[in-house]
Simulated assay, not measured.
Amino acid sequence: MGRVTERRRVIRIRDGRASVRPDTLVAEEPLEIRLNGKPLAITMRTPGDDFALAAGFLVSEGVLASADDLSNIVYCAGAMVDGSNTYNVVDVVTAPGVQLPDITLERNVYTTSSCGLCGKASLDAVRTTARHPIDDTLGGTREPLCLEPELLAELPERLRAAQRVFDRTGGLHAAALFTADGELLDIREDVGRHNAVDKLVGRALQSGSLPLSRSVLLVSGRASFELAQKAVMAGIPVLAAVSAPSSLAVDLAAESGLTLVGFLRGSSMNVYAGEQRMALGASAAQG
């Protein structure tokens, strides 16, 4: 299988002096996702957790909702002309009887590390394919989530401290799942932030943990529509990002009941939707 990092020659210039040295870079390779033997999508990703990535991608597409929907995931052999395996093609086989939504058929989608969807049609697609309505009273409790801003402010540092590959490359996005008490449940890194989220969601599906109705999803970059979509499709009630959200992400959050937090830096943050889950003072609630 492909490596997470690779070494390349670089000319380093410091204080006007140049030197030649090796540098550690994050690996980026294409992954073709096939569904029941048919090509469906190609994404540029950091190798690793490929089965989870494919499963998570299909959760966001409305194909998979639980581990029972999944029969098998395998690497396709003979991807090269000489018959060798590149480990860059996976085939997801659904369980018998799983109904495939029309939006996934014959799409041949190419997704990049910063891709996204747009428009009212995208909102409608999420509404019609969502299998896990956001309900944070699930998971053995009827008490809705209530997040302290002070605790939420601590999560980016916890995310950063757990980024192992970033320390070596400085070139990876990260996504992490936390409990409402701030406990780190899982973290994944990838050259594409949407891939990192897919890996999280895919691992949750494989372990039978969907919907993630008591979890907080934190991403290291911006909150695009696509990331909000993935949170909604996995039943995640809170999405927080260290950077800005897009307008369509805010629209989706408001429509679906998702709590969306942006610019989570230090002790400051912006709450764009779902403020009912935030433990805010009376003046903030009235303002």
Rank of each mutant, 00 (worst) to 15 (best):
L35F: 11
K38R: 15
T43L: 14
E6W: 05
A18F: 06
D23A: 15
M44S: 13
V10N: 15
R8A: 14
E6D: 04
R7S: 06
L40D: 01
N36C: 01
G16F: 09
L35G: 05
E28I: 08
R9I: 08
A27C: 09
V26N: 12
L35E: 03
E29Y: 04
T24V: 12
A18G: 07
I33P: 00
R45P: 03
L31R: 06
P30R: 03
R17N: 06
A41C: 09
R14Q: 06
R45Q: 03
L40T: 02
V20Q: 14
T5V: 15
E6H: 14
T5M: 14
P30F: 02
D23E: 15
R21E: 15
I13L: 09
L31E: 10
A41D: 11
I42M: 00
R17I: 14
R12T: 12
V20G: 08
G16V: 05
L31Q: 06
I11Q: 07
A41W: 04
R34C: 12
P22S: 08
P22R: 05
A41G: 00
A41S: 10
V10P: 02
L25P: 01
R7T: 05
R21T: 15
M44L: 12
R7W: 02
K38M: 01
L25M: 10
N36L: 03
R7H: 05
E28L: 05
S19Q: 12
D23P: 01
E6C: 08
I33S: 08
R8Y: 04
G37F: 00
T46N: 01
P39R: 09
R17V: 14
R14P: 01
T46C: 02
A27D: 13
R21V: 15
E28Y: 04
R9D: 09
A18I: 13
A27H: 11
D15N: 15
T43F: 08
E29R: 15
R14T: 12
R21D: 04
V10D: 09
A41L: 05
S19H: 10
R21S: 10
G16P: 02
I11W: 10
V26P: 01
R8L: 06
E32K: 09
R14V: 12
M44I: 13
G37H: 01
R14E: 12
L31H: 01
D23H: 14
R12C: 01
L40P: 03
P30V: 02
R17T: 10
I13K: 02
I42N: 02
R14I: 09
V26G: 15
R34H: 11
E29H: 09
T5Q: 07
I13N: 06
T46L: 14
E32T: 13
R12P: 00
I33F: 00
R7C: 05
P22Q: 04
P39C: 01
R21K: 12
K38V: 14
A27G: 10
T43Q: 08
D23N: 11
G37P: 01
I33R: 05
T43Y: 04
S19C: 04
I42D: 02
M44P: 00
E6I: 13
I11N: 08
I42L: 02
T43G: 05
R21A: 10
N36P: 08
V20N: 06
A18V: 11
I33N: 03
I11S: 10
V26M: 07
G16Y: 10
A27W: 00
L31Y: 04
T43W: 07
